[in-house]
Design a protein around this nucleic acid. Sequence first.
DNA 1: ATTAAAATACCCCTTTAAGGGTTAGTTTTC
DNA 2: GAAAACTAACCCTTAAAGGGGTATTTTAAT
Lengths: 210, 210
Amino acid sequence: MNKTTEAKLVIIEDDQTIREGYTYLINNTSPYSVVNTYSSFDIAKNKILKDQPDVIILDIQMPGTNGIDAIPQLKKLLPQVYIIMLTVHETEKIILEALANGASGYFTKNTPSSKIIDAIKEVLQGGGPMSPGVAKKVITSLQKNPDSPLTKRETQILSLITRGKDRSQIATELFIETETVKTHIKNIYVKLNVNSKADAIKVAKNNRLV
Amino acid sequence: MNKTTEAKLVIIEDDQTIREGYTYLINNTSPYSVVNTYSSFDIAKNKILKDQPDVIILDIQMPGTNGIDAIPQLKKLLPQVYIIMLTVHETEKIILEALANGASGYFTKNTPSSKIIDAIKEVLQGGGPMSPGVAKKVITSLQKNPDSPLTKRETQILSLITRGKDRSQIATELFIETETVKTHIKNIYVKLNVNSKADAIKVAKNNRLV
DNA sequence: ATTAAAATACCCCTTTAAGGGTTAGTTTTC
DNA sequence: GAAAACTAACCCTTAAAGGGGTATTTTAAT
């Protein structure tokens, strides 16, 4: 077992059975060692600095502070730590929140144990391990709507609007007149059935038009 | 070999060696069959409808239409097709563009062949297979900056600004006065060293503050 | 070669939002 | 109990947004 493959883990998870199961598994079938486990973040936060884990396996549903909110706090305590979510939650919203907050990986609880060990290896090597279904949702969240009613130019202008540019800035960027931008915007509004920038952005986001 | 695991593939890739290598490999070590290969999208586009592939393995750098631009056109021709990118490009920008355009998976060319076959299986099962480094970049693109200079309220207001809301809409949504929103915005501008909505959004996006 | 769609541009007009400066009370949080 | 955050209000000027209409040029598809 060489130095580069070793790592210290902490598990924060309110279900004792799962905690013990993963601890046993990781300690006995991998080069990694579980140095501590906690049943909630609120209990962990005052002690985890002594553990100095390289990786934290984190649940979301827990008594007190939930896992999503725990992520930035854990990162503040241990800036270099990798956090792998292990949870039953797999809605797009929660997945994206966890990743936005600083999680490095995300797995659902039906994941086979061997995959979790692979995932630990992967985060340590700078990867971003995810369950297939999670990866799918992440990709979906990035995908544009291929059936947009907008033309290329309109899409471009709407995109600049979502970046907060005003008409004259858009005109400069696209080498066209402010009045032309205005015409496009009017056409966008008609197509999206809105009559303000804010509503256009809302429709654009809801329908992934940009 | 049962029906549910079978699938027809097409490879679009300008390097003949790679094309032939993957064709041989997939046809001989997996339940999938490569029904055709093309050296560019421009050649493929008039013939691929006859192939009716379930999955397309697609390169980016090709003569004529590049792989990124080919994705929406392929999706238009074959709405149900899964597209797996296989390319040397791994900049965040290109990865995100490919996924935004409708790719279902993304691999770099140093990926072992066995992983490509796993990836085909995964897309067919509705997953989103990616190389570890790609997944990492996708996750990074979603992560917020934990060292934001903004307070919680300021971040919240900046986020609403990025959604195109004006001061009065923000005030209504947060149950505070328009003047308070204005004060927050002024403080945000000072912290971000900007003096307009557009610039604030730009800084927010560049530094992932929201 | 034609023609429909898209992109370009300009005019009128009114309303409202944005941004700068300044001060100050209240509530959280450490 | 001090600091930071959140709240709220007043002054002011300028710039932007949005609605109406019309018209030319360019591009893409048949």
